[in-house]
Design a protein around this nucleic acid. Structure first.
Lengths: 216, 216
DNA sequence: TAGATTGTTAATCGATTAACAATC
DNA sequence: TAGATTGTTAATCGATTAACAATC
């Protein structure tokens, strides 16, 4: 792990995609690939791939290309996909349960180990999903102080978010995966927030339809 | 609706966010705002806001600013948020049900009208979520030929996706909201695809943790 | 060695920001 | 009118692509 200085978000956001493609290549027995061939498969330019990878180190070999399993390992390490960072989920509704499958239930490592889910619904409290217990939302603070989760996944409506984030932040949590519209980053500048705005994504699709309908 | 030519994706992706902020401002009775004030609230520059809006027309007034309800209306129209495009959901599991709430159950218009959900699970077939019936996945083709959905929301694991997309494409569907990793755009160049890669998003968060842990 | 392909520097392209004349 | 703020052009910044020397 060589250089690494001011890696741009554009590069960082491509890493999981490299990870996926290299995982597949590696699994299907490909041992070696050139930037040109990988570019063709991923729909990128060879230049971009070499630039991206060189942010983290010289993983290739001139005249040969890249060793697929080795490169896959490097990117796994860069991402920290096998670290199993302790995390908790806030909200055990449909979204929370769906998302929990992405972490615990898919069989693939995603970097996190889900310790518990929290909800206010008495019908859910005490149940289990993918081996993860659903606990009472009132016990979040106590739980966090005991278990020090590194990250929190917020799968609740925006309304309830403000207060819960305050609690979590005060317990030392600094990493948030946020499905709500509450703007964490604006209120907690030192928090690192990855937002998933499903409605924004859907409205982008809507724009394209509207745009095309009016053109022709 | 004036100009509009080659609007960049960067601008398009900011539209839903403008929509959200203007909706809130409008709801809370703000009738007028300057690009500077809006910029401050949204964490953008005034320049960018004026540039963005001017892609679609001159919605402001020199010396005054922007009329909030009017601008909100303009952006609603640009996005087509009230069009209610007919759509179907493939997959009625946790993810499909969670996402269906974003469309039908939230009370806010998202541009689409969900006609039906499809699943292969006999326990789900025949049930209803938010007033949307869950139908047998085997009937997708027939349903599409009769109801001509404009868009399809794919909330199923990657494995099953390939065949279903082929069917949908042959029924004339060209707009896809895709939660799977199957690369629709690569295989159907004239399809318009909005991808949501939840695992990529999560792994980006993971990267930040790994990065910070190693720095200090 | 000759061929291939990287790592890296330079050129291009696009997006953001700054500046300012137009004008309400 | 004077002040404010837009619409738009020009300058800057960053990201992508192209080129090529280094080297396996």
């Amino acid at each position: 792990m060589a250089k690494r200085e001011n890696i741009s978000m554009s590069v960082i956001r491509r890493l999981p995609r490299y990870y996926r493609f290299l995982n597949e290549l590696s699994s299907s027995g490909v041992t070696r690939i050139s930037s040109g061939e990988l570019a063709k498969r991923m729909g990128l330019t060879a230049s971009q791939i070499r630039q991206d990878l060189n942010c983290f180190g010289g993983f290739g070999q001139q005249g040969y290309g890249y060793d697929v399993p080795k490169l896959f390992g490097e990117i796994s390490t860069i991402l920290g996909v096998n670290e199993g960072y302790p995390a908790v989920m806030i909200g055990a509704g449909n979204l929370g349960r769906a998302v929990s499958i992405y972490i615990s239930g898919s069989g693939k490592p995603r970097g996190f180990r889900l310790l518990a889910m929290f909800d206010i619904n008495p019908k859910l409290i005490g149940t289990c999903y993918n081996g993860v217990p659903v606990l009472d939302a009132g016990d979040i603070e106590e739980f966090c102080k005991e278990n020090s989760p590194k990250a929190v996944f917020l799968c609740i409506p925006s309304e309830g978010t403000k207060h819960i984030i305050e609690t979590l932040y005060n317990c030392g949590v600094r990493y948030f995966w946020n499905f709500s519209h509450y703007d964490i980053a604006m209120n907690y500048p030192d928090a690192i927030v990855e937002n998933v705005h499903l409605s924004d994504s859907l409205m982008t699709l809507c724009y394209h339809i509207t745009d095309n309908e009016n053109v022709q």
